[in-house]
Computed example of a mutant assay.
Amino acid sequence: MASDVIVVGGGVIGLTTAVVLAEGSAGRVRVTVWSRDAAPETTSAVAGGLWWPYRVEPREQVGAWALETLRALTELAGTAPEAGVRMVAGTQAGITVADLGPWAAQVPGLRPAAGPGELPGGVASGLRARVPLVDMPAYLAYLRDRLQAAGGSVVRRGIASLDEAGDAAPLVVNCTGLGARELVGDADVRPVQGQLVVVENPGVEEWFVAADPASADTVYALPQPYGLVLGGTAREGVWDTAPDPATAEAIVARCARVHPALADARVLAHRVGLRPARSRVRLEGERLPGGAWCVHNYGHGGAGVTVSWGCAREAAALAARRLP
């Protein structure tokens, strides 16, 4: 066999899992990623890239995954500028520490906003934090290069069954996100559509988020090197990936109430992605019908970047039990 492990899925979850497997084996395990789409075409490439647990379950496990990822991304921000990870201060509006899980106590510097001076007009309360903000196109390229440096590879290939991967390697890791709905017949996987607008940044240096998990409309502004990312939407069960002009106008208008200069900002791009939501992340192993062992790692909702390293390391630990 050409590979010891086939990781199916080339988004942030698949690439991170492949990196952990390849580096953890010190070159002894041959890891190949099969990806239907090139990295710039994946859902991960569309993500805003802010570290923060959002629309992901189960809460009791998400905190540990997120904190492990926070540590990994914080380290990259200080040691690997090519990764596209920066530590950026910002505000989560309309929530308190009590609204979060126990994980919040371990986020360095997380605190309540100190009155109107730290909050935009019209925002009564919020939390302040300095957390990783990831330039996703740069980060995905970094993960691919890091995988290749560890002896792994990425192949453009779509599959109709996990047994196709099982025929090529004794161990398969399923990181197909929304694709798992069809690939493994998991009806619990569903899309949560997110639309965003990229505009020319008029000078916004901090991130801002106001996201009610129960609402289909959110407000966020994320300063990236390529522009200011404005959002957004969270529409359950919507499969459409075409940007809607009226929705884009509404997104800009909502963000302009926080930063008035955005009302006249030049639009650079429109993007739509489908978050792979599930009632809970599926992270477990099973025997495939063809005999290969499979570890599933999908269903991360709106927090793929946020839990990527924690979930990858747990998936790799499950896989290691089946490796030579």
Rank of each mutant, 00 (worst) to 15 (best):
residue 277 A to W: 13
residue 23 E to Y: 12
residue 129 A to D: 02
residue 187 A to S: 14
residue 173 V to T: 02
residue 194 G to P: 01
residue 43 T to N: 06
residue 65 W to I: 02
residue 140 L to S: 12
residue 294 C to L: 00
residue 61 Q to R: 15
residue 124 A to P: 15
residue 302 G to H: 07
residue 36 R to F: 13
residue 295 V to D: 02
residue 22 A to I: 08
residue 233 T to C: 01
residue 68 E to S: 14
residue 182 E to S: 14
residue 268 L to Y: 01
residue 33 V to Q: 11
residue 58 P to V: 13
residue 39 A to W: 04
residue 258 V to C: 07
residue 260 P to K: 03
residue 16 T to I: 10
residue 201 N to A: 03
residue 279 S to K: 13
residue 272 V to Q: 07
residue 241 T to N: 04
residue 127 L to A: 07
residue 161 S to R: 02
residue 41 E to F: 05
residue 300 H to I: 08
residue 26 A to F: 10
residue 24 G to H: 11
residue 285 G to P: 08
residue 35 S to G: 11
residue 235 R to N: 08
residue 164 E to Q: 09
residue 213 P to S: 06
residue 18 A to T: 06
residue 131 V to H: 04
residue 174 N to I: 00
residue 319 A to S: 08
residue 269 A to C: 07
residue 268 L to Q: 03
residue 57 E to P: 09
residue 85 V to N: 09
residue 205 E to Q: 05
residue 96 T to I: 00
residue 41 E to T: 00
residue 238 V to D: 04
residue 221 A to C: 04
residue 213 P to Y: 06
residue 56 V to T: 11
residue 48 G to Y: 12
residue 24 G to I: 13
residue 267 V to L: 02
residue 59 R to C: 12
residue 135 D to G: 05
residue 265 A to E: 01
residue 175 C to H: 01
residue 189 V to F: 12
residue 292 A to E: 02
residue 188 D to F: 08
residue 15 L to W: 10
residue 242 A to Q: 00
residue 235 R to K: 10
residue 242 A to D: 13
residue 22 A to T: 05
residue 237 G to N: 04
residue 300 H to L: 08
residue 26 A to K: 12
residue 236 E to V: 09
residue 82 E to A: 15
residue 64 A to D: 09
residue 57 E to V: 07
residue 45 A to H: 01
residue 304 G to M: 04
residue 77 A to G: 14
residue 136 M to V: 12
residue 96 T to H: 10
residue 175 C to I: 06
residue 24 G to C: 00
residue 188 D to S: 13
residue 175 C to A: 06
residue 294 C to E: 11
residue 192 V to N: 11
residue 84 G to E: 09
residue 61 Q to L: 14
residue 135 D to S: 04
residue 122 G to Y: 03
residue 269 A to G: 00
residue 164 E to W: 00
residue 34 W to D: 06
residue 154 V to I: 09
residue 62 V to A: 03
residue 56 V to N: 05
residue 143 L to H: 05
residue 267 V to A: 04
residue 301 G to E: 01
residue 92 Q to I: 15
